[in-house]
Structure formats: C-alpha cells, structure tokens
Write a protein that binds this DNA or RNA. Structure first.
Length: 421
RNA sequence: GUGGAUGUGGCCUAACGGUUAAGGCACCUGUCUGUGGAACAGGAGAUUGCGGGUUCGAAUCCCGUCAUCCACCCCA
C-alpha cells in the first residue's frame, strides 16, 4: 500500500486520459473564441465573503461545502466553489463596465466543494464557464445557450436534452414561493421529510424531489411560468421564440430550479444519459442582480458552467473518438561510450532544427529498439562506432524495417524528407 | 451529513478456515555478444487497506476504522 494517497474526491488525470482532456479543452477554447468570448482567469481562491455574498448564505455550497482557511494575514479565504462570483468581482474591480457591451468572457479551471464523492461528482473538479455581461435582453441568453450547444455538438454528443425554465425575478418570485408553500401546507402529510424541510429553507427545491410520494404533489403544484411578472414573461417568450425559430430542441421543465441565490429569469441545463445520477453536464441562467449585490454597477448578465469531468464521462460512455497526442517521431539510439556523446549532440541538432526527437537511455540495441517501438517512434537513428567511423548514421524506418545509411551532414534533410516536411 | 456495496503485487483476477498467497496483463533480462513487433525461458514486484477479536490455524469468520465505488442530500 502506498504511504500517501490522493485526497478524497480528487483525481489524478493520467497520461492515458489526457487525450480526452486536451480535445475537450481545445474544443471549448475554439468554440468560445469563434463565438466572440474572451478568456479570463481569476484566482482559485478569493475572500470567503465574496462567495458568501455572491453564491448566497443559506445555500449548501456556502454553508457546508466550501474549503475555507485563514491566510497568514488572518484573512478569511475560500477555494472557489464556482466561477461566476470571481468573474463578476473581476469585472467590477477592473472597471470592465466601460468596455463595449456585451462583455463576453469564458474561463476553465478547477473548482472545489466539500461533498461526498460519487459518479460525476468530485471535491476538486473542473469547469468550463461562460458569461455575457451588460445585456438585459434574451438575445444574450440565447447566445450563451448557443455556445453550449455548439460545444456539445462538436464533441459529437448524442441525445442531448436542453431543459429550460424561468425562475422569475425579485418582483414575481416571492408571490410564487408563497403559492408553492401554501400548496405544500395543504398536502402537509403526504410529502417526504426532506421536502418538509425544503419548503421553508429552499422552497423551489421541492420541485426536483425524487421521492415517489412527492410526485403527485409536484404535479399539482402551481407553475412559476404561470405567475411571472410582465417583464419576465415577455423575456421568457422572446427567448423561446428564438429557440423555436432556430429549431433548437428544448424541453420546458417547470421543475428546473437552481441552487444558487443569484439566478433570475432564465435557467437552463443540459442533460446527458449514461453517466449516473449526476446527469447535468451544464447548468446556467441569468443573474441580473449579482453585480450590484457585489457592490458594482447594476449589470444584467447571463452565463453557464459546465462540469468537465462529467463531459469526459459522457465522451467515454458515448465512445467519442479523440485524436491521439503526438509523440516524437524520431528516436536516437546509441551503442557504446564513444557514440553516446555524439548521439546527444545529434539530438540537440535535431531539436534546434525543429524536429521532435528523444534519445534512448541506453541498454542493448535490442532493448533500445524495443523502447523506440513502444514509444511510437516512426524513425530510429542508430549511432554506433561502425557508423561514426564511416561518418554516417543508420536511419531505420520502424514501419518497414528498412535501413539506410545517411551521411552525418545530411541527417536533418533526410529526416525532413521522410517525415514529409 | 445518511445509506448500500467492495477492499489480494502497478492493473485484472484465483485460493473448501489448513504447507512458502496462485495466474494473466504490464515491466526488466535472456534465447538474439549490433537490430523492435512474435514465441519461449527467467527475474523483480504482496507484512491480502489498517487495528483488534474468534480459532491450534484467518486473505477467508466477527467488531471497529479508513479508503474506493454507487445512491440520497446537493450540484457542474
């Protein structure tokens, strides 16, 4: 048994998994750039207060799941449990409100939540995050959704389902919550224990309860989309008109809610099958009140976060083919003390000429060729005493096994030709 | 935080409560003194997660603990 093991809920992303991650990251970056989103990187830790404010006291994320610590200056800090609060803080702090609107930002990186790990849920996980700031109209909501769409589409995902709802705004949501609570009071004895707690602490959450006894109560519950104020209703209708006009499939889901306080109006998720209970691969929505809540100028905004570990799970579950990462095509083999230094010099010359090469660490010729094969070399350069005495090296094609002598001065040229440069 | 399942070399798996915990993959070496992929042979690698208990005897049974996986909760 190893003396040390990785912390619970963390993962080592091994070389064999890197092709999935590289492909995902480049797909995300390409799509984001193509849609006009610019990259922003914010710190992995911020003041605890920022998240308490931004994400919301009373949410599980803030109350139970943050990695918090005091730094040596006695400041309360927290590893980021999500991206949006930090991005909005950066937007305010750097005066980005003076930039031409919309301000479209994306980031990728790790986030941290102290939870019980399970399929698709980790304590350190990676998110892709996108935000559009400064636009109140539903076209921004659409743009953000289209980015998610295009990413999942270019990844080749099958059976994607977009779930859509509105959670209203501070003007209309309180009335809805009251109606919901009244409905639940009327069915007080029929609901599960969790819902009895939720209906006061986090009332919208009763809507996505999975307990069988709660299903009839949910089905007969009032729908928020019937109780939206004029402005929210119109916003929602316009967004749906865009989606309908584009023939983008989506499911109206009046049970879809968000666990973070800052959401207003639009909420959406993307679901994928076959990766366990944690099937939401992307979740987001509008958060018009957040910037002001964090002490900045009133700034309407909309965005989403996507869990990259879950996306990798989907890629594997759906058999998505990802390009192999290239290994150096050239492998330098050497025989004996006299040839070793020469082989190293040759290696450096090749690299300076822009040719990707690596050198054998020694052993019998047989062992060195075996390594060359296992490392996926296309061409092996054999540098031995015989070759050196003749002023040449032996070039072995690992595909055909064919060997040709090459004059030392011609090596770079010969390799370029063989590799099709 | 709650519940269930599972812990045997790096990975996968075997071993009726009974010798020195067996095999496969991978790794290293040799057959091949300067030629990869195949075959064959050999080598290295495990106080059976940890701690107690039952027993003449525990990988195996019991208790505890830790870890992993899955689910709840919550969320990406």
């Amino acid at each position: 048994m190893p003396q040390y093991s990785r912390p619970k809920g963390t993962q080592d992303i091994l070389p064999e998994d890197q092709p999935f991650w590289e492909h995902l990251l480049s797909t995300v970056a390409d799509a984001a750039r193509a849609h006009g989103f610019e990259r922003i990187d914010t710190p992995m830790f911020e003041s605890t207060e920022l998240f308490a404010r931004g994400v919301g006291e009373g949410t599980d994320i803030v109350d139970k799941e943050m990695y918090t610590f005091k730094d040596k200056g006695d400041r309360d800090m927290a590893l980021r449990p999500e991206f949006t609060a930090g991005v909005v803080r950066a937007y305010i702090e750097n005066g980005m409100q003076v930039l031409p609107k919309p301000v479209k930002l994306y980031s990728t990186g790790p986030a941290f939540r102290y939870e019980e790990p399970q399929a698709g849920r980790y304590r350190q996980f990676h998110q892709f995050n996108a935000e559009i700031l400064g636009i109140a109209g539903p076209l921004a909501d659409l743009e953000v959704m289209l980015l998610a769409w295009d990413i999942f589409e270019s990844l080749g995902f099958q059976n994607l389902a977009f779930q859509l709802n509105s959670t209203g705004c501070p003007r209309c949501r309180p009335a809805y919550i009251e109606a919901l609570q009244a409905h639940y009071r009327a069915h007080g004895e029929a609901i599960c224990d969790d819902c009895r707690r939720r209906i006061t602490q986090n009332p919208l959450r009763v809507l996505d309860c999975k307990q069988p006894q709660c299903q009839p109560v949910i089905a007969s519950a009032p729908k928020i989309t019937d109780m939206l104020c004029e402005e929210c209703a119109q916003h929602f209708a316009e967004l749906r008109a865009y989606l309908d006009g584009l023939d983008k499939p989506y499911t109206l889901n009046h049970r879809l809610v968000r666990g973070l306080d800052y959401y207003t109006k639009t909420v959406f998720e993307v679901w994928a099958e076959g990766i366990g209970a944690q099937s939401a691969v992307c979740g987001g929505g509008r958060y018009d009140g957040l910037a002001e809540l964090l002490g900045g100028p009133s700034t309407p905004a909309v965005g989403f976060a996507s869990g990259m570990e879950r996306i990798v799970l989907v890629m594997k579950a759906q058999g998505v083919q990802v390009p192999a990462l290239p290994s150096p095509p050239i492998y330098v083999v050497h025989l004996g003390d006299a040839s070793r230094l020469y082989a190293v010099k040759l290696l450096v010359v090749l690299r300076e000429a822009g040719l990707a090469a690596q050198i054998s660490m020694g052993g019998s010729l047989r062992a060195q060729l075996r390594h060359a094969d296992k490392r996926g070399a296309k061409l092996t350069l054999i540098v031995g005493e015989d070759e050196l005495n003749r002023g040449e090296i032996t070039l072995r094609d690992m595909g055909s096994g064919e060997q040709t002598p090459v004059a030392i001065g011609q090596v770079v040229e010969a390799l370029r030709e063989r590799l099709g440069h």
